[in-house]
Design a protein around this nucleic acid. Structure first.
Length: 106
DNA sequence: GGGCTGACTGACG
DNA sequence: ACGTCAGCCAGCC
């Protein structure tokens, strides 16, 4: 058994951990998933604080901005995020992720 | 309790 | 299409 996540951070990590390979969610969608309708910014903040120890289990690269944009300050860098996504077969429309194809809804 | 901050967003010019 | 501005949220000091 695992104690249910309390703070926003843990709830965010929980949701992100559940994003399937090859799919992506926007900060806004994650926020809504954790019960914070307009907490997109807070979600980004939570991911920026992602502990090194969780980098393995939490696929942070599957979280993108609205419209499929890649945040300039994401993780090790937008290039890394892009590379990881492409490695999963995620298609891009220019600089943006093709949400119509890989967007996750919930 | 008040103010600051940031991997966000939507509206404008 | 692009930079700026102003709301929005929760954790930290």
């Amino acid at each position: 058994m695992r104690t249910p996540p309390t703070g926003l951070f843990d709830r965010v990590y929980d949701i992100v951990r559940g994003i399937p390979r090859g799919r992506v969610m926007t900060y806004g969608q994650v926020a809504r998933a954790v019960g914070v309708t307009r907490g997109a910014r807070a979600v980004g903040w939570a991911l920026s604080a992602l502990p090194r120890s969780l980098e393995r289990r939490v696929p942070w690269h599957r979280v993108v901005g609205v419209g499929g944009r890649i945040s300039p300050r994401a993780g090790t860098g937008p290039l890394v995020q892009r590379r990881r996504l492409r490695a999963e077969g995620v298609r891009f429309q220019g600089e943006k992720v093709d949400l119509a194809r890989h967007g996750l809804f919930a």
